[in-house]
Amino acid sequence: MISKEVVEKVAKLSRLNLDEAEIALYAEQLSQILDTMEGLQQIDTDGVVPLAHVLPIENVFREDDVGQCFRQEEVLANAPEQSDGMFQVPKIV
């Protein structure tokens, strides 16, 4: 069972605000999902190398060549708030 504290910690890490009802709901949901996870323990994976990429390819590179950048006004086109060619946020102490 996932505790409310865990949900609160994870929500903070993920920058989400939850009210009491949501915390309870997600605690229950997360517990349910984690329960199905327990099933995985039944598969013996001793000595199995974790598979992060399904493709058997390696060493995908680009050469160190400079390409076209986007223009400042394009980069800022979707910005909620901007100033002097930069994205604007509240003061960071």
Binding site: V75, S83, M86, F87, V89, K91, I92
Partner: peptide, 15 residues
């Protein structure tokens, strides 16, 4: 890089 504008109380971001 972050550029702080003390008078405006804002921070500007340059990527």
């Amino acid at each position: 890089k972050l550029v702080h504008d003390i008078s405006e109380g804002t921070t500007h971001v340059d990527f």
